[in-house]
Every structure is written in C-alpha cells, then in structure tokens.
Amino acid sequence: MKLADLTKPWEALSYGFLDASAKREMRRKMLKSIAVPGCQMPYASREVPMARGWGTGGLQVSLTLVNPRTRVKVIDQGADDSVNAASIRRFIARVAGTPTTMDTLEAGLIQSRHRVPEEILRDDQVLVLQVPNPEPLRSVQPNMSIARQMHADADYGRMWLQLYEQIVRSGRVMQGASYPSLVHGRHVMTPSPIPRWDVPKQHMARHLTILSAGREKRIFAVPPFTRVEPLVFSDVPYKVEDHGDLTCTRSGTRGYFMNEIPQNDGTSAYEVSDSEWGVKTIRAAEDGGETRGETWYKDGKMS
C-alpha cells in the first residue's frame, strides 16, 4: 500500500456536493431498502444547503445517483416551475453538471414532491419522492420505537381501525394524501403525500421508486413490479379523487389530476396538476406535433 493510494487529488468541492463517504452510506441503504420493499431504513441524512423538510432526503438520493449523463427533472406538486422545484433542479445541475429537462419522457431521474407524473415511467427511469413523514403509523402510535416493533410484527390492526373510524364518522375514508399502502404484502408504507390518484401508479410499475425523508432520516423504496396495495376493506373499494371528468381551463386536457383554483364567485376552475402535460397538450393543439407519451389514466380511468 502506497501513500498515493490513500489520497486523492484535491477538489474544491466533491462532485455532486455530497462527499464520497456520504454517497457510500446512501448506496448501502438504497440497496437494503430495495431488498425489503416499503421498510423504512435509517440513514445519516447529511447536511445539504437547503432546510430540512424542503426535499433534502430526495436531494441526497438524487445527488448520489446522478452522473453527467443523467437527465434530471424536478417537480413540486406536479409543476416544474415552482420555486422549490426550480431551485433543486438548478442546484443539481450546478453541482453535478447534469442536463435538465421538464419532459417526463426525456428524464432519467425524476425528483418529485407530492406527485407522480401522468405519463407512464419506463424501466430506465428512477422516481425519487420527497417524504415529510415516513411513518404511516405515527397517527396511531406516536412512539417510534413501538411503531418499529409494530412494523416488525406486521401489526397493522390500528391502521385498519383508523380507516374504519373514518368511514363510520364521515361515511368515507378521509385520507386525502399519503394513503397507507401495503408493499409486497408485508410492510405498510406511506407513499409520500401523493394524492390517492397516484397510488395505483406505484402498483407493479416498471420504474424504481425511492422515497427518502431527510428530516426524519429514513429511506425506503418500491422496486419495479412490486405489489403496492392501498389498505381497503373488501366492501369499501379504494376511490381516487373524482377528477376523471374535469377539464383543464388552460390546456383543455381532460381526465387527469387537477388543481382546484377557487374563483371570486364561489365556483372553482381547474388546471392540470402535471404542468408539463398541460404544456404538451397546448403545444399539440397549436402545431399538431404529438409529444405526449402513454399515460396511466386513460379517459379518467386507471388502465
């Protein structure tokens, strides 16, 4: 062993901001989280130049995975142009020299907050979801040591009880986002605060999904072709939001997840949440060039 073997050339800043040991830890934990789908793995969660809770977990995963050929897309609630998404995209491009895109079909790596894109992801794409609260049991068990034991025992009775109470009190399941889902028939996970609309997209998908909570220091994953089943009672079917009949006021696209925009007269206008889908729809109407890919939902129904 020579001294030269143990050193490396000086760099002003590590490629991709994270230092090599941080990346190695992320790599080890990502492998384990893929091996046990839906199981929360603790990790160190290093400092990144962004406040915890703003996507630091997802950012660390992205920074570990990228190389100068990875085309990066970042979305926040479906939009590529919101402040948080634009800042993260620019940061990754700056520290890792990656090309960026807004087109879902062009992207190699998609970091997302609260949405899964409408176009079907391929097996060469990775979806990184930012997770604020990775523990689905927190609402029924605030003590995380006990919650961990419940995961170990697959003791999810209280999750069912919570859903039952919602149905009894309100007549329907009140869980709007982060709908608890059983992964590979073993671990209940939160799919991150994606709407109910997006949960079926995770089931037997072709792409790898990595979910990372930077503030809570936990990472979990849904490998391709993995069962992701929202918890439901056999006589109360799983329902996605009633957006199948809504039309986007800006692009005219219909049958996708919409943002509701309250109007002065008390009514609501809707615009498609996946902003790039809306842009592509407008472009297709203007010049007839079709750039839209296949979508998970067709005519407002999951296919």
């Binding site: 490396k8 050339p9 760099e11 002003a12 800043l13 590590s14 490629y15 991709g16 901001f17 090599a20 190389n67 100068p68 700056r94 520290v95 890792a96 020299g97």
Partner: peptide
C-alpha cells in the same frame, strides 16, 4: 468554491 461538474475517475 466552484463546484466541479466533472466527476473524478473514482467517482
């Protein structure tokens, strides 16, 4: 410090 958009060989 300027970030290095070129990864090292080991990276």
């Amino acid at each position: 410090p300027e970030p290095s958009p070129d990864p090292s060989l080991s990276e």
